[in-house]
Design a protein around this nucleic acid. Structure first.
Lengths: 263, 263
DNA sequence: CGCAAAGTTGAGCGTCCTCAAGCAGCGTGG
DNA sequence: CCACGCTGCTTGAGGACGCTCAACTTTGCG
C-alpha cells in the first residue's frame, strides 16, 4: 500500500503539465525519422520475442471479428484494412495499415478480435504471441514502450479520422484521404508521386462515410482542379503532383467558423 | 536472437485463430460485471502505484493538447470530454469518459498530449506517473494487463464511434448517443432512467457531426415517438423509459443494404 | 429586472444520396 | 476473333436530409 491519499483540492496542482508549449516540433512526422523508428521497432521486436512470419495475399484475412484473441500482428510489408461490424448488418472500414503498424489491439480487452483484418495486396506479417510479448515486455522497458507507443498512435489516428469525418466536406475528405495515404507512404520511404489505391470506390466511400458515386465525383473535381491526376493505364492509380496543394485545398474548404462552437 | 525466421508460405497457418465462434458471450457489457471490473481495477491500481487524487470542477482542464506528457489519469468519479484540435481551426469532441476510464493515452506516442481533457462536472481523477506505472507493470502482470485492456477498450470505442458516424442518420446518431450514455451509466451502477446531459446542444452536435439545430430537432422527434421524454424542470434532463426501444429505433432506421457493399 | 446564453422552431437552400444509364476493362467460351 | 457477361467506374437527373439563416422563447445569473 503505497497510496498517497493526499487530496489536493484546487491550488498547487501537482501533476498538471506546463501551461503551454512554444516549440511545435512535437508532431514529428518527418519521413526519415518515422522510417527509422519503424526499422528500429522491427529490429527490437525481432530480438526480443519469437516471431512467426507469414506471407498473405490480397483478400486474405489475418483474423476475423469474434475469433479468440491470442496474437498481435506487425505489418512488415503490404497494406491492410480493418473492417468493423456491428450486430445489425452495418460494416465499415475503420482503419488502413501500413508497414510497421500493429494489428489486433482491439482484441486485448475482450479476449476476442473486434474486427476483420484483410490484406489488400501481398504482404508479410509478423505474428507475435501476446502473452509472450507481455512477458518479454516485463524485462525490457524498450519493448513495453514500443507496444504502448503503437497503441497510443492507433488511438490518435482513430481520433484524427473522427475529426475529418465530422468537419470536412466530401471533397475535402477524399483529399484528406489521399493526403493520408501519400503521407503514410512517404514516411516509410516509398514513392508518393504516384500511388495505387488498392480499394474500390465503394470501399473508399465506406471508409469516408459517403457513397461510391460521391467518391468518383470528388476525384473528378480534384482532377479538374489539377490537385490530382490520373495515369494513362486506369483510374485506380492517382498522381499527386504536390501534396501541399492538397493540404491547402482541405484548409480552404473549411466553413471558417469551426472554432467558435465550443465554449 | 530468438527469432524464428521460418516463413510459412500458404499452408499450415500456425498462428491463425479458429475458423469461427459459436458462443456469443464475448461482448460482456453486463452492468454488474463491468462495475466489478472497474472497482477491481481501481483497487489494483491503488495498491500498485503512487496515486495523487485531484478534485476538479466543470470546465477544468486536466491537460491540454501540446503539453508534455507525463501522467495518465484515471477517472474515479464525474464525466470528462476530450477535445481534439487540428492545426487549422477545427476542433471536435472525440470522446466521453466515465468512471474507470483512463485519460491521456494519446500522449504516449508523441510525448505530448494530443487533445484537451475537460471536466464536465465535479470529478475526482487519479494521477499516475506514466514512468512509475511502467515500472510497476514490469513486475505485476495484472497491472500491465489492466493498462493494455484499457487502451484496447479505447480503440474499440473510437471505432464504434466511427461506425455510428458513417452509417447512421442524424436521428439515429442522437439515439445511439443517448443509448451509449445510458449504457455507460448503467454499467457503473448509476441510475439510467433519467440522465442529465452535461453538454449543450452545440457540443452534442459537434460530437455527433451535426449542427445544434439538428440535435434539437432530433430530440424533439424522438420525444414525439415517446422514445425519450423531458423532465418538467428543463430540457437538459432526458428520460429514457426503455433503452431497448431506442436500440430498436436505431436498427429500424438502417438503409437495410449495408452488408452488400464490402466484398 | 434585464441581459446573455441556450434552446426551439420555421423557411429556404445546398450537399450529398438515390436511382438509372452508359462506358471501360477483363476473363470466358463459342 | 469477337460476343458475352461481369465488375468497377463515371455521369446525369431528381429528391431528401441536414445546414444556414433568422426569429422567438426559455433559462440562468448578476
Amino acid at each position: 500500500m503505497t497510496t498517497s491519499t493526499h487530496i489536493s483540492a484546487h491550488p498547487a496542482h501537482p501533476p498538471f503539465a506546463a501551461p503551454a508549449m512554444a516549440d511545435l516540433g512535437w508532431r514529428n512526422t518527418d519521413a526519415t525519422v518515422v522510417s527509422e523508428r519503424i526499422a528500429g521497432s522491427l529490429r527490437l521486436l525481432q530480438q526480443a520475442v519469437t516471431i512467426q512470419r507469414r506471407l498473405v495475399h490480397a483478400g486474405d484475412k489475418i483474423y476475423e471479428a469474434g475469433q479468440p484473441f491470442k496474437y498481435l500482428y506487425v505489418l512488415n510489408s503490404g497494406i491492410f484494412k480493418t473492417i468493423n461490424a456491428s450486430q445489425d448488418g452495418r460494416e465499415q472500414v475503420v482503419g488502413l495499415h501500413f508497414k510497421g503498424d500493429w494489428l489486433g489491439f482491439d482484441g486485448i480487452a475482450r479476449g476476442r478480435y473486434g474486427c476483420d483484418a484483410v490484406a489488400m495486396d501481398t504482404a508479410e506479417v509478423w505474428c507475435v504471441s501476446y502473452t509472450s510479448l507481455c512477458q518479454a515486455a516485463a524485462t525490457q522497458p524498450a519493448l513495453m514502450a514500443l507496444l504502448h507507443e503503437s497503441m497510443s498512435r492507433e488511438i490518435t489516428r482513430d481520433r484524427d479520422s473522427l475529426l475529418s469525418l465530422c468537419t470536412l466536406s466530401a471533397d475535402a475528405r477524399v483529399a484528406d484521404f489521399l493526403r493520408y495515404w501519400a503521407e503514410s507512404l512517404a514516411q516509410r520511404g516509398l514513392r508518393t508521386d504516384q500511388i495505387t489505391l488498392r480499394m474500390t470506390r465503394a470501399e473508399i466511400g465506406n471508409y469516408l462515410g459517403m457513397t461510391l458515386e460521391t467518391v468518383s465525383r470528388a476525384l473528378t473535381r480534384l482532377a479538374s482542379k489539377s490537385l490530382i491526376g490520373f495515369t494513362a493505364k486506369g483510374r485506380r492509380d492517382i498522381l499527386i503532383p504536390d501534396v501541399t496543394q492538397l493540404v491547402a485545398f482541405i484548409e480552404s474548404s473549411l466553413p471558417a467558423a469551426r472554432t467558435a462552437t465550443l465554449q
